[in-house]
Amino acid sequence: MSDVNLAEDIQADRSKMHVSDTDVAIEITGMNKWYGDFHVLRDINLKVMRGERIVICGPSGSGKSTMIRCINRLEEHQKGRIVVDGIELTSDLKKIDEIRREVGMCFQHFNLFPHLTILENCTLAPIWVRKMPKKQAEEIAMHYLERVKIPEQANKYPGQLSGGQQQRVAIARSLCMNPKVMLFDEPTSALDPEMIKEVLDVMIGLAEEGMTMLCVTHEMGFARKVANRVIFMDQGQIVEQNEPEPFFTNPQHERTKLFLSQILNH
């Protein structure tokens, strides 16, 4: 897989990444979800400590995206408990909004707002959700646009940017809300190979600053260097999870072995 090779030259400093022993960011217990009669998520249990970087992989249709989308209620779970930052996710709209404020999300197709400039994309939520004064929101937005290395694009529209730039804006947009957790749903799958690295670099930077991250991705180089845990899902279940080194060199479950052999040996 060419992406894997490309990601080999990314650099990450694991010594900076600190995982808390006591502080729980997300706790999922016995979560089940059905689409009609189809059981898409089966008894998911996952405890994420603050500062953890978790990579979730698995074949398409395995429920990995659905799982992380349940965490900020883009999908509703029917059974089980999800607690984010101490708040239990129920159908209470106030709770949902509270959680969404603390959880940032990046999508495969960026989902920037095409009718707003880059700067407006970034300031929108701080102004309307956090009730921040416009000037302060713009300062924060520029700060994060500089972090993702595109402050000069602030007054352009998303349609004028490349895919990699758009995804970096999407990350900056989430960061402007100062989230405690970041969810990434295949952030590099829609990008050309040469743009993948610029997005991964930003994500590594985030990890080094101690952001709690859940990434659905097939960037195995990223998983090796950044993740402290890799989760393999298949048919709506967590099949295997481990630290990256043993996960890749010594997978236990048959399906994990099959999956890894398919994506790694080309």
């Binding site: 900020n72 209620r73 883009l74 909004d97 969404r100 404020r101 959880v103 940032g104 999300m105 999508f107 197709h109 989902n111 920037l112 707002f113 929108l124 939520a125 309307w128 959700v129 947009r173 989430s174 809300m177």
Partner: peptide, 14 residues
């Protein structure tokens, strides 16, 4: 696209 609704939701907009 559905993504516009989702992005707005994910940012916490009502």
């Amino acid at each position: 696209p559905k993504g516009q609704y989702e992005a707005a939701d994910a940012l916490g907009l009502g």
